[in-house]
Simulated assay, not measured.
Amino acid sequence: MSMKMNRMLLLSALAAVSLVAADKINGAGASFPAPIYYKWAHDYQAQTGVQVNYQSIGSGGGIKQIEARTVDFGASDEPLEAKRLGESKLLQFPAVVGAICLAYNLPELEGKEVKLSNAVVEAIFLGTITKWNDPKIAADNAGVALPDKAITIAYRSDGSGTTWNFTYWLDKMGKTWHEKVGLGKTVQWPVGIGGKGNEGVTNMIKQTPGSIGYIETAYAAKNNLPMATLQSAEGTWVKATTENIMAAAANAKWKGEEGFYQILASQPGKNTYPIVAATFILLPQEKAAENKEVSKFFTFAFEKGAAEAEKLGYIPLPKPTVEAIEAYLKTNNAK
């Protein structure tokens, strides 16, 4: 076979590899945004033919995989600070905003509202309140026939941005929690049983009468799990409604030069839901071609996926934030 023919075959093979790479994007990380990422991926493939394969493995796994460069993008509900981004040579931007709820399984109540004060939530997760009819819970739930049933805690067993945001809130509002447990993607839970991913914790709650656990609101809504009414930073009772989640998101001050680092939990406002979080995308600085393909997907999501995000209980990013992200990606040769 001639050298010319060999060269032609090699170029053809390389072109085929490039075509395959361009037709598939691999991402991994947070389970918090997985429902909307799956929907966006389905719609994007239908329109462009490009497959977005997203693995819901938890924020800790997503950070590890993008730092190891084994995926095209990582996803984390814990934003990385500028120093960590610089050390790992990563870009970061938010994709969508959501909320973490306390979902529970009490069929006896037949859907009646349960209010849980900050002090009660802290005590439940510390293991010092162990029954649903505890006087401290009953005090805020007049007229609700709380059952004499043991409380079972369901928590995340994997490295989780949902855990990081939930424990950030607990750590900020609970002195005892701060002193004994603290915050992190993983913590030493005083009581309870662990499940992997939002999916695992959701299943544990569904299967365990008397249980309570922290999950993204989209998982609770999809599985018809009731969500506790919580207290705002001002002490008023608030539900995880779109309006109350948006109230927290409205306080965000996104800055591209800081990798859009922002924590939305415990934001002020009497109508502000207390456990709100943005979820973030991580890209390797040096992979310009791959980053541009990932950027196309999220541009599609920002422009055409807002309605689908709202249907699932997420809050799309406001237009000025999207414009700031687009400028940030262009500046960093990722668009």
Rank of each mutant, 00 (worst) to 15 (best):
L126W: 00
L126K: 01
L126V: 00
G127H: 09
I129M: 01
K131R: 15
D134L: 06
A138D: 09
D140E: 14
N141D: 02
G143M: 02
G143T: 02
G143H: 03
G143A: 03
V144A: 03
V144C: 00
P147R: 05
D148V: 03
K149E: 01
A150Q: 04
A150H: 04
T152E: 03
T152D: 00
A154D: 00
A154K: 13
Y155F: 14
R156K: 12
R156F: 01
R156L: 11
D158I: 06
G159Y: 10
T162G: 03
T163M: 13
T163G: 11
W164N: 15
N165L: 12
W169E: 07
D171Q: 12
D171E: 13
K172F: 11
K172L: 09
G174E: 04
K175H: 04
K175V: 13
T176M: 01
H178W: 09
H178P: 02
V181I: 15
V181C: 07
G182F: 13
G184H: 11
T186R: 13
Q188G: 02
P190I: 12
P190A: 14
P190L: 13
G192P: 11
G192I: 05
K196S: 12
G197E: 06
G197A: 08
G197V: 08
G200I: 11
G200D: 12
V201M: 04
Q207S: 15
T208K: 08
P209V: 00
S211R: 08
G213D: 11
G213M: 05
G213H: 05
Y214T: 14
I215R: 08
E216L: 01
E216T: 06
T217N: 15
T217R: 15
Y219L: 09
A220W: 06
A220R: 02
A220L: 07
A221V: 13
K222N: 11
N223D: 13
N224Q: 13
L225V: 02
P226L: 03
M227V: 07
A228E: 00
L230W: 00
L230K: 05
A233L: 07
A233V: 11
A233F: 05
G235D: 04
W237V: 08
W237N: 05
V238R: 01
K239W: 03
A240H: 08
T241W: 12
T242E: 14
E243Y: 06
E243A: 15
I245N: 07
M246Q: 15
M246R: 15
A247D: 07
A248M: 12
A248H: 09
A249C: 04
A250K: 15
A252N: 09
K253M: 01
K253A: 10
